[in-house]
Amino acid sequence: MKRLFYSSAIYTALGLLSGLFYREMSRANNFDGYSQLNVTHTHMLVLGTIMFLVFMLVEKNFSLTRHQKLFNWFFVTYHIGLLLTVAMQMTNGIMTIKGIEVSPAIAGMSGLGHIFLTVAFILFYILLNKSAFKNKK
């Protein structure tokens, strides 16, 4: 459960720092349009901070970590997906603010991050099913 707590706390810090970075990057480059940096802050706070708090509550009620191997797969896959997605958002946003043409490869990598998140949510629901309905057949 501590891993879930620390993950939430770290994503809170990263989310707040990304909001600060967006503001300062936009100000320094006199940019007032839309870039992917606008939503990086929200993605980290919602998919990072809030979701890990939700996972913590679910862990408290259903002991997901009893299924250690499956839980580890979910945990690592979720982090990879979220970090890859947010890293590509930041890359796209910085390139947009700097006036650099954004490569389609950035969108492809972001899509890969979303695929990892999708797999992580599937693993989470399998894990939740095993934990919540362990005695029911």
Results as ranks from 00 to 15, higher is better:
L82H: 04
F52V: 04
L112D: 00
K98M: 14
I10A: 13
T12I: 13
N61K: 15
K98A: 15
H41G: 08
L37S: 00
F21S: 05
K2Y: 10
S110R: 15
S18T: 13
F124A: 09
L47E: 07
L14I: 10
F52H: 08
I122G: 06
E24Y: 13
L53M: 10
K98Q: 15
G108S: 11
L53P: 00
L64E: 02
E101P: 09
A13E: 09
L123C: 08
A105G: 00
K2H: 11
I97Q: 09
N61A: 14
V86A: 07
Y11M: 13
M56C: 01
K98I: 03
F21T: 06
N61C: 04
V46D: 08
F31L: 07
T40Y: 01
L117G: 06
Q68A: 15
R23L: 14
W73E: 13
R27G: 01
T40P: 00
L16N: 08
R27I: 06
T118L: 15
A87C: 01
G93Y: 03
L20M: 14
S18F: 04
Y11T: 14
V76E: 08
M56T: 15
F121V: 06
L117F: 03
K69N: 14
V119G: 05
A105E: 12
I115W: 11
G81C: 09
L84G: 09
G33S: 13
K98V: 10
Q36T: 10
A87M: 04
F71H: 07
T77A: 04
G108F: 09
L123M: 14
S26M: 11
I106C: 06
L117A: 07
A13L: 15
F5Q: 12
L84Q: 11
T85I: 00
D32V: 11
L14H: 03
A9Y: 11
